[in-house]
């Protein structure tokens, strides 16, 4: 037993490096210390702003165009952020004007990429362009015919079903801002759906979550999505029937490189 003041409390503080959870915060009586009240408040402010920050679709579209992508802008049937939050059904349907704009671009496409604000426009502003820059070379290597990239406002994941069907794409990959956590206001999600059509549920999709610098790195996430896309075309399905075994492929790939370097 040490004679130092509060050795137990001090030692508990050492645990904090073992988890991202908010432990060993200290206390002022029963309450949080001011430092932690403010730290929590700022994290909540970032998460709230991620939900409500206006989606800068123009900027996202122009930066995607710099990657030599043709971009089409669409809107869901939800007219405002409040309506989007209250009516998830409207966020899953295209506005009538947007539906017409896509129908005239129908073609013979393998993959439609949809960029959707979802519940975190911050996630799109920060992560979608660098992620796309990692993904595109991998798709090019597969020789896929890409539909014009669709940037959607007030959009839920299932909006991609209608977009993919309207463009005539064999599969759709929706890159969407995920519900922001206090410690992750900028999480990008990628949802892949084979043979997209209205009325599908999440059981028909594969999901890669938490794509952000502090989470799943762009390069790793792009490899996973590219792997899933290749497997989806090989097996003509996505969803519960397609397990993400890209980590095995990555390990095999690494082992192969190692063998070559030897």
């Amino acid at each position: 037993m040490s004679e130092e003041p509060n050795p137990g409390v001090r030692q508990l503080a050492d645990l904090a490096r073992l988890t991202p959870a908010r432990i060993a915060l200290g206390r002022s009586g029963a309450s949080l210390p001011t430092r932690e009240v403010l730290r929590f408040g700022m994290a909540h402010a970032q998460a709230r702003d991620a939900v409500h920050a206006p989606f800068d679709a123009d900027d996202v579209a122009s930066r995607l165009a710099e990657l030599r992508l043709e971009v089409i802008r669409v809107e869901s049937a939800a007219c405002s952020r409040e309506e989007y939050l209250r009516r998830p059904d409207l966020g899953r349907r295209l506005s009538s004007g947007s539906r017409e704009a896509l129908t005239v671009r129908r073609g013979d496409f393998d993959l439609s990429i949809v960029v959707a604000d979802g519940l975190s426009s911050t996630a799109i502003h920060q992560n979608v362009v660098p992620f796309a820059a990692m993904l595109l070379p991998l798709l090019a290597r597969q020789g896929l015919r890409l539909a014009p990239v669709v940037v959607g406002r007030e959009a839920r994941v299932a909006l991609g079903d209608e977009i993919g069907a309207a463009l005539g794409a064999r599969a759709v990959a929706v890159l969407i801002g995920e519900r922001p956590g206090l410690s992750s206001p900028d999480s990008l999600g990628a949802y892949l759906t084979f043979a997209p059509r209205a009325g599908l549920t999440d059981a028909a999709r594969n999901c890669i979550s938490n794509i952000r610098p502090g989470g799943l790195a762009y390069e790793h996430a792009a490899f996973k999505l590219s792997w899933l896309i290749a497997e989806a075309f090989r097996r003509s399905l996505t969803g519960v029937g397609l397990k993400d075994e890209s980590d095995l492929a990555l390990e095999a790939d690494a082992a192969g490189k190692l063998a070559i370097s030897r």
């Binding site: 988890t19 915060l25 206390r27 029963a30 956590g181 206090l182």
Partner: peptide, 24 residues
């Protein structure tokens, strides 16, 4: 929940400190 912030489920609940508050 540590600091009321669930880092797995991404939502906010009540914390170790909150239960001290209500007891007091």
């Amino acid at each position: 929940v540590p600091g009321a912030d669930d880092v797995m489920l991404n939502y906010q609940s009540t914390s170790f400190h909150d239960q001290l508050y209500i007891r007091e």
